[in-house]
Design a protein around this nucleic acid. Structure first.
Lengths: 246, 246
DNA sequence: TTAATTGGATAACAATATTGACCACTCAAC
DNA sequence: GTTGAGTGGTCAATATTGTTATCCAATTAA
């Protein structure tokens, strides 16, 4: 007959699955601290030894790091976006494999293209709200606000792409940016010419996404990335900001 | 934070869920005999006491009936299609509630309409195969074969409607027909005039479903049901078959 | 009737989960 | 620095749940 074998669930495995899912979805981000074992045990309604069993498994998989007396943290896989731990995580969650393959081509460009194709009504409202704020900040010449909104804007576009792995990776990239590893976005915004250029480029991306035009979005995103890279290289070479107009 | 409570699985509950799902999907039909407890326990990979615990629950819910030394059977809810047991079963499976509400309006008419809207390519192939056989049987004047194919045809239409409760109910109805509770379909087919009429009506339903035309399907199904009911009433009143042409 | 099969029931055992306690380490307030 | 609250690390006693094995009673068909 058609009877299926019952899946004998160990509760610890169920906890492992939940935490992995949270990491995959980007709810738990690298470096985040988990609640204490006692608190978390109550929240997930499991005894502490069982919870510890789950945490142990997650640590062995390289997804968590515990410090005696300190706390338990989501492993910081920045710089090793394709660490074995993440690869294994994706491998164990088949629905994410498609996301993974899709990821490997481009990043920002792809993000813009997907956002243009998949942005929901809710996504569009958020993006519009942020872009309006960017225009206001530009009017007021509020550099710091502009730089912050820049990150928010790209994050919102990233959310609209609806690809978990893509979003996960983007967030890692944005953290690198925020840490000033690549370049200091606030610095970029202090250059008058760049400000105009960037607003212009962001408007092009915004319009393309709102129009649901993937090709235009790809083109706009490409132009944006090209420009930023060019400026960064320029600065790295000359140590000065060059002037330009929109 | 966002942690969810772990669902503490009792394996017995998992078994209950599986059997209920099988009943809902119509895989297990009223009157069907389950494998012996020892066999079933092996199949679902659970110890016998646990399996018995699950069966006990299902019996309490009125979905199974056990006979000491005889076997365990899916409860026969025919004649009480909306018995408390079925209502409760549907209530515990929220996805089926929509099916349930959708059900209550019409039955055969709705089935034809849904089939026209939702029939997959696989559905269409099966329906076509059966209808071709009906035409052949009609040519050969094979009454018994024609009556059997009639049931098959309507069953196939029922499958194509893709509504679990609807299918469940239809099967109960067809069993009543097969048992001759309402009328003997084979008798109906022995009337020359009726045979022509019925093939004509079935062709109308077939065409409408294949064309994906819900309105035409509804109309054709309505005409078919009206005709059958009319003939049955006629026979019940006069005791004779009246002649008619297609 | 008889033998095989089925459901009904239970005890002994094993696996799993919970509870509570205690220790060692970290961190921040003092 | 010292201290205390909070953290992870560990373990034992207990409770819950599931497995295994056995027996009995009722049905079924040869």
């Amino acid at each position: 007959m058609v009877f299926q074998k019952i899946q004998h669930n160990r509760t610890a495995d169920a906890v492992v699955d939940q935490v992995e899912e949270l990491i995959l979805q980007g709810v738990l981000r690298p470096g985040d601290r988990l609640p204490s074992e006692r608190d978390l045990a109550k929240k997930v309604d499991v005894s502490r030894p069982i919870l510890r069993d789950a945490l142990k498994t997650l640590e062995e998989r390289g997804l968590l790091a515990t410090r005696h007396g300190g706390g338990t943290f989501v492993a910081d896989v920045i710089g090793t976006v394709f660490s074995d731990a993440v690869v294994e995580l994706v491998r164990r969650h088949p629905p994410a494999i498609a996301d993974y393959l899709e990821y490997r081509r481009e990043i920002e460009r792809t993000t813009a293209r997907f956002a243009a194709m998949r942005a929901t009504e809710a996504d569009r409202e958020i993006i519009t709200r942020i872009f309006r704020a960017m225009e206001e900040a530009h009017e007021k010449a509020d550099f710091a606000e502009e730089a912050e909104l820049d990150v928010e804007f790209h994050s919102a576009i990233g959310e609209s792409a609806h690809n978990i792995v893509l979003l996960h990776t983007l967030r890692s990239c944005y953290r690198l940016l925020a840490d000033g590893v690549f370049y200091n976005r606030a610095q970029l915004y202090r250059n008058p010419g760049s400000r105009e250029q960037l607003l212009c480029q962001h408007r092009a991306i915004y319009t393309a996404v709102m129009d649901g035009d993937p090709d235009a979005a790809t083109k706009a995103a490409t132009a944006h990335i090209d420009y930023v890279e060019q400026v960064v290289h320029e600065v790295a070479r000359t140590g000065n900001w060059k002037r330009s107009v929109c």
